[in-house]
């Protein structure tokens, strides 16, 4: 390998390193902004102040969904450690159900209730036909209560 080629390889390596370094800098400068949502635990540790718009994500706690009159509803978002109560009025996506992932967009009020303007469903990375789910449930291998 001649000196010229070695120099070119060093140039390519410096491009790759430079790109990576720039990306690390930008991403660390953005910090929390790269997170799409906070978990209920994040809400406690970061002490998000009332009125600040953010997104909260976690699982819809079982037996927590309550429908008031009309479109109004309440449910609790949990990450296993902490919970945040959510109030919402409007249509929910078809995947919204207890025990399922959810992301709510809105803000906390003074009383610690999260008032959502929009509710999105977050699904997990499992894909299977209903028969397989039935079989798993019969054999007791199904951990997630439905």
């Amino acid at each position: 390998m001649n000196a010229r080629k070695r120099r070119r390889i060093a140039f390519v390596a410096s491009l790759l390193l430079g790109g990576a370094a720039a990306a690390v800098l930008v991403i660390s400068a953005l910090q929390d902004n790269v997170l799409y949502f906070y978990s209920p635990s994040d809400v406690y540790t970061k002490k998000v102040s009332a009125g600040t718009a953010f997104r909260i994500g976690g699982l819809v706690q079982k037996h927590s969904v309550k429908h008031d009159s009309g479109m109004k509803m309440q449910f609790v978002v949990t990450d296993g450690a902490r919970t945040v109560p959510v109030e919402y009025s409007g249509d929910v996506p078809s995947l919204f159900r207890e025990g399922q992932g959810v992301v709510a967009i809105g803000r906390l009020n003074e009383g610690g209730l999260f008032q959502a303007d929009q509710v999105l469903a977050k699904h997990d990375e499992k894909y299977m036909p209903p028969e397989v789910v039935d079989a798993l449930k019969r054999s007791g291998e199904w951990q997630k209560g439905q």
Partner: peptide, 21 residues
Amino acid sequence: WTTLHQGESILRKGGPTIAPV
């Protein structure tokens, strides 16, 4: 990061979480 997009289904520890069908 936390994302709305779900996690990796195919190239993950413990094999894919997608049923063979």
